[in-house]
């Protein structure tokens, strides 16, 4: 399987403070050495909590923002070396869908034009051809043809997200970065849009880099999952592996915290309470160590590298020799068995 996207050791910091003379003196390290790949037609989910750097990874992948360091390869070509002209050409093959369609679609443009715009930039189609294609696309995403001449404010969130999807697929891209595409939608609409994304992938074979915090959704749509914490990948595995046997303590805590829609399987009493986030992650050692129930001396000295453990890539010294059942709550170093953590539900 060939890779559509390859990120290697990508890093990005944002300036959060400047001296009186305007010289940057404090940084937020949003993404720190992230390496991941997305194969043709594959869905890779990037999960993590707010501030983990998932959205920044999505933007870096399309070079919407410039990385500080690391490589981006798209369809085998080096995206960082690409000229403005190359980039413009490549952008037809890689698209993005955002969380909030109210702000991602131009409010002053009728939706027909919004959907047609990428065709104007990336193809030499005539106006008539464009119109035919847009009609076709709008119908494909479940909209009516007469919607073409309406403005975004006339639609609901679910309809707007369909329009945003139509716009994203106009140029038959190889990769779509979906940044929380259904998080803002109502429950009954969410399922419709998820099904649409899934059907389009089956039809057109495009790959998704799917950024989300919704783990139950990930289980349904992703081939592989990348778990991020404080700007770094802490675990990556196939969806089956990750949910069957999460290896990183953070992944386990995350899965254990997802509420299940079944009153007979309540877990608020059983899930591990993580220690609260204490400001910035530590300067050295594992970023998760201050909150981790398994942390030992070793974890605070040097950050564990991503290494393969039972088919997972895990950045944890304790991933292989700590039996999953012994993950515990309470103070570091005082484990007691909690088998509930094994159940991803």
């Amino acid at each position: 399987m060939t890779d559509v996207l390859r990120l290697s050791g990508i890093t990005k910091s944002f300036v959060t403070g400047r001296t009186l003379l305007g010289k940057p003196n404090s940084y937020f390290h949003a993404v720190r050495g992230v390496t991941l790949s997305v194969a043709r037609g594959e869905t890779v989910a990037v999960v993590g909590e707010s501030g983990a750097g998932k959205s920044t990874v999505g933007r870096l992948a399309l070079r919407l923002i410039e990385p500080d360091d690391g490589g981006i390869e798209f369809n085998g070509s080096d995206l960082r070396a690409a000229s403005k002209e190359d980039l413009r050409r490549l952008r037809g093959r890689m698209r993005m869908i955002f969380q909030d369609p109210y702000s991602s679609l131009d409010p002053s443009m009728v939706v027909g034009d919004t959907v047609a715009e990428p065709l104007l930039v990336h193809t030499k189609m005539s106006a008539a051809e464009r119109r035919a294609k847009v009609l076709d696309l709008l119908q494909r995403v479940g909209m009516d043809t007469h919607h073409m001449d309406r403005f975004p404010y006339e639609f609901s969130g679910g309809q707007l997200q369909r329009i945003a999807i139509a716009r994203a697929i106009t140029t038959d891209p190889d990769l779509i970065v979906c940044d929380e595409p259904v998080a803002a939608l109502d429950m009954s609409i969410r399922a419709q849009v998820v099904n649409l994304l899934r059907d389009l992938q089956v039809e057109r074979g495009m790959a998704y880099l799917f950024i989300t915090h919704d783990l139950s959704l990930v289980r349904l749509i992703a081939d592989r999952v990348v778990v991020m914490y404080a700007g770094q990948i802490v675990e990556s595995a196939t969806t089956e592996q990750l949910f069957a046997e999460p290896r990183h303590p953070y992944t386990r805590a995350l899965l254990a915290a997802v509420p299940v829609p079944d009153p007979n399987r309540r877990k608020s009493q059983t899930a591990i309470p993580l220690a609260a986030v204490q400001g910035k992650p530590p300067a050295k050692g594992c970023s998760f160590a201050p909150r981790c129930p398994l942390a030992t001396e070793e974890c605070t000295v040097e950050a564990p590298p991503l290494a393969e453990v039972a088919g997972h890539d895990v950045a944890c010294y304790h991933a292989d020799h700590v039996p999953v059942a012994e993950l515990s709550e309470g103070a570091p170093g005082t484990p007691h068995p909690r088998t509930e953590l094994l159940d991803p539900h």
Binding site: D186, S188, I189, A191, P261
Partner: peptide, 24 residues
């Protein structure tokens, strides 16, 4: 029923979700 069935938890892995058609 529709709400419960439209949840990812109700679908089989990699399957379609049972969406409620239309909107409120």
């Amino acid at each position: 029923e529709g709400l419960i069935q439209s949840l990812p938890e109700s679908a089989v892995a990699r399957g379609r979700l049972a969406a409620i058609p239309g909107s409120v």
